[in-house]
Amino acid sequence: MINKSKLVKRAIKGDQLALQQLLQDEQGKLYKMAFIYMKNEDDALEVFQQTVLEAIESIHQLKNPDYFSTWLTRICINISLQEIRKRKKVVMLDNLSFPEEVEERTSIEEQLDLSDVLYELDEKYKSVLILRFYYDQTVKQIAQLLECPEGTVKTNIHRGLALLKQKMKGAYKDDRREKSY
């Protein structure tokens, strides 16, 4: 069994079979990351495809094999964000609507049914929360991955958690009223 570090070194040197194996090992993680941004299977598959192509084209530029996963995740996030930006430009006004009113939940079980609250978060909060609490990355690792200061990561984690909490408690309702004034 060849270890991951050796495989990454081989991939950097041009061994496409090694790169394919590495990408296969990471495919679930990449797909989930893409899905949380794109919110549907077809678009998440398209992001995955583009991530694979970008990895093939630029693996030779990876300097430190230890950062392979970080580098790959960054590609996936960047492509997802590019796609979202592209699509935001063509959203028709008719499609814009307020979210349905959500009754306040009393138990965490009921709240967990509202798993789409994570999807509704702004991308910058979504990224840090998933990396921090699902993939157990440190603040420093996230800062390296997203290429931003550690302070920004900490702030976004804090704000993201607060927003998530707010949404879980049915804050949509109050937010909507405020906007209508």
């Binding site: 797909y31 949380i36 598959l45 965490i108 709240q111 509202l114 929360l129 998530l164 909490k165």
Partner: peptide, 20 residues
């Protein structure tokens, strides 16, 4: 609770391994 929501949301995403 917020972290549970994050974990559950991610766990609930079905990965189409064959398509990938």
């Amino acid at each position: 609770d917020e972290k549970k929501v994050i974990k559950k949301t991610m766990d609930d995403i079905t990965v189409p391994n064959q398509k990938l």
